[in-house]
Write a protein that binds this DNA or RNA. Structure first.
Length: 608
DNA sequence: CCCCCCCC
């Protein structure tokens, strides 16, 4: 059969003997779903090497999608790129389960069209005296073969017992754990660890912490309550590898966990945890980061979890507030992360992370599992369950960013993914400047936000900047003492210097109306394409340079994201517009709005 | 046995 990959004949005998075989090629003779309950999905495979077949094979759940896509039909020939074997069951009936964690389809079932060879079960072949020894191979076994004497005595809570099992190499892959078998030990890396949390409800009260564990086969969440919480909290550290045994397994509630496992673990009084001190990590993978460029965050769905890395360009004050809904007090701190996509996003830290954070050195921040929140039409990242941050991580991406930023890389951030320091072009209602008046926007307690396409008519150079407190966290206007000293009333300090901050008023117009709007520092810097320092200096000392900067933007068109709020000055109410963000015109998006407006106006092409 | 992840 030309084009059909040859099977690795007889290889199942070697695999089931614990030998590591590189990329065996097998044929799928059947696949069926086990565990029929709705939130648990797992497939069992019947696979043949043409000589033997093996029904104790499982598909790791991260490969379920291949089955969903119809890629694993009967007769399909696959190459096992990664797999793990594990002994399960009581000693006398030990079975070696094969868990496939990565595979490549070589020929589709339709292409092959039939079962190759006349395979028999490996177990029957053994009984009938067929060759049971592994064939000659230079590769070392991953796991020890089944020891002759009964080694797996987990009937007491004794570390020596655990050690002997572990030393014999008898750890199970996480993917093989289920509530139906409890004699196992896993060797896993801690990828995240929660803070200790207390609860109190009708069913009682207590405390707990949870952690996420990972090995080559998969991941699982574990929770330690009460006594176990106190006992293990300090021992468990992110990135370390531990042996765990005698935890209770139960179905995971998918509502609360994004981890790819149908089960989760609870520590019990019998649980044994032991730190793995070996230098060799034994194939336990490093924590993997799927780093998303900050610019991409704008295109991702609300509530998505993601990994990213950026420079903490700005850091906010620690804020404390009481939640209106729960009456709980929260502490948070907002960081502005920037990266080489010339984009910025806000990352919110909570609790101790927020309190202890020192951002003044503009560190590299690596974050795993941060969640997207939509706020004011922008997107922010927030730490939550399972999220971790690392400050100045020793990884190539971190060093690259450091070099980029220290050479001025962060000076031209043009894309503000979060609304506070800018904003995107998503989810914000389009409006004309006339509609803003007609609809009485900004009259409520909360500001209104909208976007419009407008052209800059005139920019005021007078009072376009002010002299602000030089402290990085304080932007209050300083009082010029006239003797080379500047006084900040907020910090109650005298300084020999100040920093320029922009506060630009300009007139913009669309086809319906003109309005005066205010740009604060960051947007002003983006608009004028110069730092506040440069603009302030030019305005004070180099009028021609300043003129050039300001006239360069006259009659340019942009998408303005505006905040609208009516404010009282004495007994006069003024409706104020401030520019939250400024973006180049995305004609695809803008035309969508125009087309919709046309439909609404004419009724042509509309549904009603 | 938790399952909240907040606020502007």
């Amino acid at each position: 059969m030309p084009g059909i990959a040859p099977l690795s004949t007889g290889v199942i005998a070697r695999i089931m003997h614990g030998e590591e075989v590189n990329q065996p090629v097998l044929q799928i003779l059947g696949i069926k779903k086990i565990n029929s309950n709705a939130d648990s999905e797992r497939y069992r495979l019947l696979m043949s090497d043409g000589q033997y077949y093996n029904s104790y094979a499982m598909l790791a759940s991260q490969l379920n999608a291949m089955q969903h896509d119809g890629l694993l039909k009967e007769n399909t020939i696959v190459r096992l790129d990664k797999y793990i074997t594990s002994l399960v069951g009581k000693n006398d009936t030990d079975k070696r389960v094969l868990i496939v964690t990565d595979l490549t389809v070589l020929n589709s079932g339709a292409e092959v069209g039939k079962k190759i060879g006349e395979p028999v079960t490996y177990e029957n072949a053994l009984k009938n005296g067929a060759q049971s020894k592994p064939l000659a191979s230079s590769s070392a076994p991953v796991q020890q073969n089944k020891p002759e004497k009964k080694p797996m005595l987990y009937n007491n809570n004794n570390n020596n017992t655990l050690n002997s099992s572990i030393n014999a190499g008898l750890t199970s892959p996480i993917a093989s754990l289920s509530p139906y078998q409890n004699k196992w030990a896993i060797k896993a890396r801690v990828t995240s660890k929660s803070a200790i949390r207390t609860w109190s409800n009708a069913r009682g009260e207590g405390k707990l912490f949870s952690m996420d564990l990972m090995d080559e086969s998969g991941e699982i969440r574990a929770t330690a309550f009460k006594e176990q919480c106190d006992k293990y909290y300090d021992l468990i550290q992110v990135d370390n590898i531990y042996y765990f045994s005698k935890c209770q397994l139960k179905s995971a509630n998918k509502q609360f966990s994004q981890l790819k496992n149908d089960y989760e673990m609870t520590f019990t009084s019998d649980t044994v945890v032991q730190k793995c001190e070996e230098m060799d990590d034994g194939g336990i993978p490093e924590i993997k980061y799927d780093l998303v460029p900050i610019s991409q965050v704008a295109n991702m769905e609300d509530k998505t979890a993601l990994d990213t890395i950026g420079i903490c360009k700005e850091v906010g004050e620690l804020q404390t507030f009481t939640s209106r809904t729960t009456n709980k007090e929260f502490r948070k701190r907002e960081l502005t992360l920037v990266d080489m996509s010339n984009s910025a996003v806000t990352l919110t830290l909570w609790g101790d992370d927020a309190v202890n954070f020192d951002g003044h050195v503009q560190p590299v921040i690596l974050v795993k599992g941060a969640r997207i929140n939509v706020f004011n039409g922008g997107k922010t990242l927030s730490m939550g369950g399972g999220s971790t941050i690392k400050i100045n991580p020793d990884i190539p991406e971190g060093h690259k960013l450091r070099g980029w930023f220290d050479n001025g890389g962060g000076d031209n951030i043009t894309n503000m993914v979060s609304a506070r320091t800018g904003g995107g072009n998503f989810n914000t209602e389009w409006m004309t400047l006339q509609e803003v008046r007609l609809r009485n926007l900004g009259a409520g307690d909360k500001p209104d936000y909208f976007q419009c396409k407008a052209v800059i008519h005139m920019v005021k150079q007078e009072n376009a900047f002010y002299k602000a407190c030089p402290q990085s966290e304080c932007n209050k206007k300083v009082v010029d003492e006239g003797n080379g000293q500047y006084r900040c009333e907020r910090c109650n300090s005298l300084y020999p210097n100040f920093k320029y901050r922009l506060l630009i008023n300009m007139s913009i117009g669309d086809w319906t109306a003109n309005r005066w709007v205010t740009c604060f520092n960051e947007v002003g810097e983006q608009l004028l394409n110069h730092s506040g320092q440069e603009v302030g200096n030019a305005l004070e000392n180099e009028p021609e340079a300043a003129q050039a900067m300001f006239s360069a933007i006259n009659f340019t068109s942009h998408i303005f994201k505006l905040r609208c709020k009516s404010e009282m000055y004495g007994d006069v109410t003024r409706n104020k517009l401030s520019v939250q963000a400024l973006t180049p015109i995305n004609y695809k998006e803008y035309n969508k709005y125009l087309l919709k407006s046309l439909k609404d106006l004419t009724g042509i092409g509309s549904s009603n």
